[in-house]
Design a protein around this nucleic acid. Structure first.
Lengths: 203, 203
DNA sequence: CACTCTACTTACCGATCGGTAAGTCGTCAA
DNA sequence: TTGACGACTTACCGATCGGTAAGTAGAGTG
């Protein structure tokens, strides 16, 4: 059985890393949020770096399982992918910390790349491009074409997702609500336009 | 005359903040990169926070001036905006640090929001939505509609821009080159699809 | 009862953080 | 010649960082 304390550590750590980044988060503060000392954290995870790795792994697992779930859904591949991408946008409140942390990891990667050994996002991107290639017209698309298309859409989704606090402050709560209301429709149009526009067949 | 040392400090600080974030960057390291001590930095800027503020202000100015330059270009509003957005993508190597720092600022904003007084990105976003509303069909679009459209596109651009190191590591240099080659064409298609699809006239 | 294991604790370490205080040194003006 | 000023320096501060060492308390096992 997996320790309950461990799980609670991972939960709190995800939030702290997401909000403050790897450097900004302190293991003492994470432990304090659970009423424990940082040495309890060290006892369970060995080091801050290893804790961070487990947090990323958990996020990676969540992302992938979301795709697998969506893949079971019936319908044709195009609407299936469209629904998945839109649910990525709609679920952003529940996954806010995950999204922030993924973005932070992309930003920190330049510095961390030397030490990094595991590419937590690769299975996720691979799964998305696989789904993309099931859409009519995209079957023969090169890797680069499918990845580019996927990347633009999740870029639009992720960028919006992390901007909420800033947009609310900039334009006010009501303006943000209106923006939030119009966004899904525009996003759907964007996805459809993208799917309807496959690359020319190679060769 | 503005001190040369000051400018060099701002340059180096931009790079350090972009790569390591506010917490990850240290004023001692920034000063050391110039062969000076951190007290020299404090002498010029007063505090780390103020240095960071000036770095953001400089980026904000650069972003805005890029729009102003593009706005002078002739042509019709649609291609003018299209060219501007594409140049945003094409120039990403030269502005890599700026982009990374803007993303970091969005991520940190939740924590910094209490203290923050200046919304560095607002003039930039306002300028972009203004350009958007000069495009035929968009003249009467609500703020939220124009902002949503702009946001999706710069989301796709920014997300890709910060991903280079990760993508290269994940898929290899050659695969990234192919991705980089196909991206602008897909981006152009995305922008056109977006501009050609204005919201229904309000009221 | 003795032993071990897990889950923590207190006490401490050296390093580094941002920032202050008090100079030093060269330039330029009166 | 003096005095002020800008551009730095060395020396230092308390706080906090991640991590180590050496325990302690409680449960389970023989």
């Amino acid at each position: 059985m997996v320790s309950n304390t461990r799980m609670r550590f991972l939960e709190v750590a995800t939030r702290h890393f997401a909000e403050n980044g790897f450097d900004g988060a302190s293991i003492a503060a994470i432990a304090r949020a659970l009423g424990l000392t940082k040495q309890a954290l060290i006892h369970h995870f060995g080091s801050k770096e290893k804790l961070y790795g487990e947090v990323l792994q958990q996020i990676s697992d969540r992302l992938l399982s979301q795709i697998i779930q969506a893949n079971v859904g019936a319908d044709d591949p195009a609407t299936r992918l469209e629904d998945l991408l839109l649910s990525l946008h709609e679920d952003r409140d529940g996954r806010a910390d995950d999204t922030r942390l993924v973005l932070r990891e992309l930003l920190d990667n330049k510095r961390r790349a030397e030490r990094a050994t595991n590419w937590y996002l690769k299975p996720y991107l691979d799964a998305l491009t696989t789904l993309m290639r099931q859409v009519p017209g995209w079957e023969t698309a090169r890797d680069a074409e499918a990845l580019a298309a996927v990347y633009q859409i999740i870029g639009a989704i992720y960028f919006f997702a992390i901007s909420e606090p800033t947009l609310v402050r900039m334009f006010g709560e009501r303006a943000y609500d209106r923006l939030e209301t119009t966004y899904p429709a525009r996003l759907r149009a964007l996805i459809r336009a993208c799917l309807r526009n496959p690359p020319a067949a190679p060769g």
